[in-house]
Structures are given as structure tokens and as C-alpha cells.
Amino acid sequence: MKELFLLFYYFAKIGLFTFGGGLAMLPMIKKEVVEKNKWATEDEIMNYYAIGQCTPGIIAVNTATFVGYKKKGVLGGIFATLGVVFPSVVIIVIIAALISNFSSISYVQYAFSGIRVAVSVLVFDAVIKFIKSGVKDKITFLIFFVSLILALIFDVSSIYLVLGGILLGALIGERGKK
């Protein structure tokens, strides 16, 4: 019971400080899940993110469910997930109910322009980690590079890139590894 509560608590904390979507959440996950509680390794988190990209739903929720399940089974998955969405639900309901023009308040806008810079720094960190864990040889570099060009310049949907990556991995993974 105590562990379920801890899952809820730490994922609520992560949810409260996630700005700008699931990717920006990675540094918080690393701090609270990998370093502090040791619920999962960094490698496992990378895998969860990868799976979260190609399954339906929100990446933050998918990752929470994975970590919770790993720690405490089905109930753990549910508690961690409810934790990660809890702060948003409370905050949005308050804003929807009380403040009709929240996002046009100038102080809110200044603060969030500042937060965007913080999130850039945090995501930059995430990028370095993902490249380190994913790009290990010529083949993975090629996959990374082509996928980056396709997504950035040709605006190819991530779902095709993800499926392509899985397919290529399954076909050539054997020879790609030493």
C-alpha cells in the first residue's frame, strides 16, 4: 500500500512540473524515478519512451503505466498513471472555473516564455541521452540521420518512421550488431 502511494506521489510531482509535453518530462523522470527511487534504469526508460511513441495515448501516461507496472504490477500502473494526471486535472479545473482569460495575463505569458527556455535546456539534455543510447554504430547513425531528415524537412508522420525503424531493426539488427 505504501509503495502504491509513493508511486502516486512521485508521479504527481513529475506531472506538476512537466511543461510542454511528455518529452520535457524526461529529466524529471530521470531524477525521481531513476536516481532517487531506482524504480527503473535509464535504458528501460528509453525503451518505454520508444514504445510510447508508437502506441496510442499520451507518452507521459504510457511511461507512468510502464514504470508503475514494473514496480507493483497492474495496480502500480494504475496508481502511477492517476498520479501523473492528477495535478493537471486539478489545475485545469481551477483555471476553467475561475480564470476566464488565464493565458492572456501578461505575467503568465512572461513566465511561460522563461519556462520555454528552461524546457529547451532540459530537452537538449534528453536529446544527448537519446542519441547516446540509440546511435551506436554506422547503421543506427544512418537510421537516425534519414529519419531526422524525413521528419524535419519532409514532415513525415512519426508513426511511419517508428514502424520503419522497427522493421529495419528486425531485418538487419542481426548483422548490425557485433
Binding site: G20, G21, L23, A24, M46, N47, Y49, A50, Q53, C54, S113, R116, V117, V119, S120, V123, F124, A126, V127, F130, I131, S133, G134, V135, T140, F141, I143, F144, F145, S147, L148, A151, L152, S158, L161, V162, G164, G165, I166, L167, L168, G169, A170, I172, G173, E174, G176, K177
Partner: peptide, 27 residues
């Protein structure tokens, strides 16, 4: 599963790069 992840991870790395580009643009 191991091979699938081997191909999937560089793709995810590229998607994170795209997310970085768009957030840097807005910042």
C-alpha cells in the same frame, strides 16, 4: 524484440531532435 529496439531507438532519437527544434523555435 532486441532487434526491433535496435532499429527503433535511433528513430526515437531523431523524433526528440525534432521536438527540440520546435521548442527552440518558440523560445
Amino acid at each position: 524484440v532486441k532487434n526491433a529496439f535496435y532499429g527503433l531507438r535511433p528513430v526515437v532519437a531523431s523524433l526528440v531532435c525534432c521536438a527540440l527544434v520546435s521548442i527552440l523555435k518558440s523560445a
